[in-house]
């Protein structure tokens, strides 16, 4: 791999020059390509969604998604180049998501990016999809002040990150068992409230009393880690005990009390970090960031520290390539390039 780097070296720019990156994304059911100039400036952002194709199956079918990605690959790249008004020769680097996601889909744009890198002799950048969702915030709000904290929460992860600047982050804490979104899903299924669990519990909680049941909050000492499995067990024990006593359970009260315990755990850890790290702003990302009660509680507590809370607008929550291109730019500045042997990692973590 040393060979590639030597050849690139003469051509690698620094941040004073304009840097154009073609970014590609195919980790789930959107085939996407974008051109980013200097990271946060999005010259084009083409997303071809396959949502309708998978609807009748009640979920994304990996093989159908992979077939569609291959079909849409060249059209989305062409459109991204045309809309940005540039050609292949103008590119400084090419980036693709390499995980997490569906392996068959990931391999389509990852292979394409490798071939572009080899063909044009430009650096290849492998981007973590979760980091992409965080950087979607910075595209939308370039004025966000650094340093900052980011709480990224979804069905697959719960991470508290510290950013000195946008060139990298430090993981302060993460869940030691279930992800927050996973806890919502499990409890929702247990209570027969439906799937996905987040919105289902949030809806039931609106009609419930959040102080009805005092569920435990995990105490992990000095760390910034999270834990939700104890809470999950407490909810299940509560329900079983009440049923044995022949008492009727108010699902709305249960949902509201459970949600409050999750929100409180997330918010408390975040505020603890705010105090220690003297940050200028706080950012939420991931599917659970859509929870209104979470935004409300964190917003109120941050207001006491005169800090503003940022969260992504709905349209940037869907997968797109511009967010991958934004991450790629900072990796470019750090010379964080991938070898042509990089493989897709379906279970990639931050």
């Amino acid at each position: 791999m040393g060979v590639e780097k030597v050849e690139f070296e003469d051509r690698i720019k620094d941040e004073k020059e304009d840097i154009y990156i073609l970014a590609l994304e195919s980790s789930c059911d959107e085939t996407a390509a974008s051109i980013n100039k200097n990271g946060l400036e999005v010259l084009s952002n083409v997303v071809s969604s396959q949502v309708d194709l998978h609807k009748k199956f009640g979920g994304v079918v990996p093989e159908i998604a992979s077939r569609k990605h291959l079909e849409l690959l060249l059209p989305v790249i062409d459109q991204a180049l045309v809309e940005a008004g540039i050609d292949f020769e103008d590119l400084d680097a090419v980036a693709s998501t390499y995980g997490p996601g569906l392996v068959g889909g990931l391999l389509v744009t990852l292979t394409a990016a490798k071939t572009i890198s080899l063909s044009l002799n430009i650096p290849l950048i492998g981007v973590n999809h979760i980091a992409g969702h965080i950087y979607a915030n910075f595209i939308e709000n370039p004025e966000i002040k650094k340093p900052l904290l980011c709480l990224t929460i979804s069905g697959g992860h719960t991470d508290l990150l510290y950013f000195e600047n946008l060139r990298g982050y430090k993981i302060l804490g993460r869940t030691i068992d279930d992800a927050a979104g996973e806890a919502f899903d499990k409890i929702s299924r247990f209570m027969d409230l439906g799937y996905p669990g987040g919105p289902a519990i949030e809806k039931a909680a609106l009609a419930g009393n959040k102080e009805a049941i005092d569920f435990p909050r995990a105490d992990l000492g000095d760390s910034y880690n999270f834990s939700f499995s104890g809470l999950k067990t407490a909810v299940m024990n509560y329900v079983n005990n009440e049923e044995q006593r022949g008492n009727e359970i108010d699902k709305n009260d249960l949902a509201a009390s459970f949600q409050e315990a999750v929100v409180d755990s997330l918010a408390s850890n975040l505020i603890k970090a705010v105090k220690e790290y003297q940050v200028q702003s706080v950012v939420l990302s991931g599917g659970v960031a859509a929870n209104q009660r979470l935004r409300e509680v964190i917003g109120e507590r941050l207001a006491k520290h005169k800090l503003k809370l940022y969260y992504p607008p709905l349209e940037l929550c869907t997968d797109n390539a511009a967010m991958i291109g934004a991450v790629a730019y900072y990796q470019y500045l750090d010379r964080d390039f991938a070898p042509l042997s990089i493989s897709a990692d379906p279970a990639l973590k931050l």
Binding site: R67, L73, L74, L107, V108, T111, A112, T115
Partner: peptide, 19 residues
């Protein structure tokens, strides 16, 4: 193998498109 085939065909498409 479908996955294998997509790797080769993607490479061919991109080479065809760029050059």
């Amino acid at each position: 193998s479908f996955t294998g085939l997509r790797i080769g065909i993607t490479t061919a498409k991109i080479l065809g498109r760029i050059f």
